[in-house]
Design a protein around this nucleic acid. Structure first.
Length: 166
DNA sequence: CCCACAAGTCGCT
DNA sequence: AGCGACTTGTGGG
């Protein structure tokens, strides 16, 4: 299943993100951090279904980067443990422009003491931005960390008009 | 204020 | 089995 992932660049004003699709939907998304050798798959071999998802993904991504809530999300093909899926699911419920702390997420999934585990699951989030791991701040509204690069977390929060401490 | 530590869970070595 | 990771609350200097 992993081998059949289709890699497609998503061009935005902030650089080229890379989306990876499985037969079930969007499986991964990465920041334009390292200028990945834009290994573009020939359009002809991209199934129409995936081209449709790509269009939605691109629109959603651009909306968020422009500070607007996305209208639609592509189907997501999440791979992970039950614990991680619970966390990611909780993350998707955070309203645009709102934030939650790692501790609050832990409570939502019914394991109030698993705050640290939540951090780990967020770090393992395969689809940043669409699954708003950046809307999760530490307890005192401080930034905490971010696997995609702290700079991105700040940019994303700023675009959504979210305030935070340092 | 800064440092150390423990706790719940996952993934890599 | 051990350790680090997008944490947090507590305790001591």
């Amino acid at each position: 299943m992993k081998n059949s992932l289709l890699e497609i660049p998503v061009v935005t004003h902030d650089g080229n993100f890379v989306a990876r699709y499985s037969e079930k939907g969007l499986a991964e998304l990465s920041f334009p951090n390292s200028r990945v050798s834009a290994r573009v798959v020939k359009k002809e071999i991209i199934p129409a279904t995936i081209r449709g998802w790509q269009r939605v993904t691109e629109a959603a991504l651009k909306s968020i980067l422009a500070g607007r809530p996305p209208e639609k999300f592509p189907p997501l093909d999440l791979t992970g443990t039950d614990f991680q899926k619970s966390v990611w699911n909780a993350l998707r419920k955070i309203a645009f422009g709102k934030t939650k702390s790692y501790g609050e997420i832990a409570v939502v999934i019914g394991k109030p003491k698993a705050v640290r585990a939540v951090g780990g699951a967020c770090g393992a989030n395969p689809i940043p931005v669409l699954i708003p791991c950046h809307r999760v701040l530490a307890a005192n509204k401080k930034l905490g960390g971010f696997s995609g690069g702290l700079a991105w977390k700040r940019v994303l929060l700023a675009r959504e008009g979210i305030g935070f401490s340092l």
